[in-house]
Simulated assay, not measured.
Amino acid sequence: MEKVDRLYHLVWMSRPLMQVAELAVEQGLEGSGLTVRMRAVLEVLRENGALPVPEIARHLQIQRQYVQVMVNETLAEGLTEQRPNPRHKRSPLLALTDKGQALIEGAVARERVLLEAIGDGFEEQEIATALDVVRRLTERLMGKTGGET
């Protein structure tokens, strides 16, 4: 198989991979009260601290307006709270509440258990190489398509 064919298959396999990954995440959230969308916002805040909506959108690489809908869900459930943003008065910072922090930590812990189970048989170097290839391929495709969504 040629390099171009392998790249083609790699790109197109990303869709079923993301679909089954989202299903696994969704199943792991059962009973928690979290949706996949809410979990995405909480994870960005867990990793980066308090951020305004436009920054969350950049991390998720989706439109700000859609992220605002997601953020509104987390606010309504008491998982996040708004704080003043010293850099921008009209764009408050969004921060995890204790409830939000506990829920995202629990979700990530369950996902790590799943990843340990499915990661059996993969060498650490294989995973590092795959991650590097996907990152570089994403960057190159973003450069060819005009950047972020």
Rank of each mutant, 00 (worst) to 15 (best):
G49N: 06
G31D: 05
A21Y: 09
Q63A: 14
V71K: 00
I56M: 07
G49E: 00
V69C: 07
R39Y: 15
Q19S: 13
A24K: 08
M38Y: 09
N72L: 07
V41Y: 05
L45C: 04
P16L: 03
P16W: 07
T35R: 05
V36L: 14
G78T: 00
A21S: 14
R37N: 15
Q19P: 04
V44T: 02
R37L: 15
R46E: 09
L42N: 00
R46Y: 14
G28V: 02
V69P: 03
G78P: 02
N72Q: 10
Q63P: 09
M70K: 02
E47T: 04
L42D: 00
I62P: 04
M18T: 14
S32I: 08
Q27H: 12
R46T: 01
Q19I: 03
L23R: 15
V53I: 11
P52E: 10
V71Y: 03
Q68D: 08
E77V: 05
R64L: 01
E26P: 00
N72M: 08
Q61F: 03
E77K: 04
L45Q: 03
V20S: 13
M70T: 03
A21C: 13
E55S: 14
S32F: 08
R46K: 13
M38L: 08
V71H: 02
V36R: 09
P54F: 09
L17W: 11
R58E: 12
A57T: 11
A40G: 10
Y66D: 06
P54L: 04
Q68W: 08
L23Y: 04
M18A: 13
R37M: 14
V44C: 06
G78D: 02
T80W: 01
I62R: 10
M18E: 14
G31M: 04
G33I: 07
L17E: 11
S32T: 14
V44I: 03
Q61P: 01
Q19Y: 06
Q65C: 06
G33K: 10
P54M: 05
G31F: 04
V67M: 01
R46M: 08
S32V: 05
M70F: 13
E43H: 15
R46L: 09
Q27N: 12
M18C: 10
Q61L: 15
E30R: 13
E22F: 06
Q68K: 12
L42Y: 04
L51R: 05
R46F: 11
S32P: 03
E77W: 10
E73N: 10
L34P: 01
A50S: 08
Q63F: 00
M70R: 00
L23D: 14
E77C: 03
M70E: 02
V44H: 02
A50K: 03
A76G: 07
A24D: 07
T74P: 07
I56C: 04
R58A: 09
E26T: 12
L17Y: 13
I56F: 02
T74C: 13
L51P: 00
E47A: 12
G33N: 11
L17I: 13
L42I: 10
L34A: 10
Q27W: 09
R46N: 10
G31P: 06
I62S: 02
E22S: 12
R64E: 08
Q68A: 11
V25P: 01
A57M: 04
E55Q: 15
L29H: 07
T74V: 08
G28R: 03
L75A: 01
L60K: 03
R64G: 00
L17Q: 12
A76R: 12
E55W: 11
A50T: 00
L17A: 15
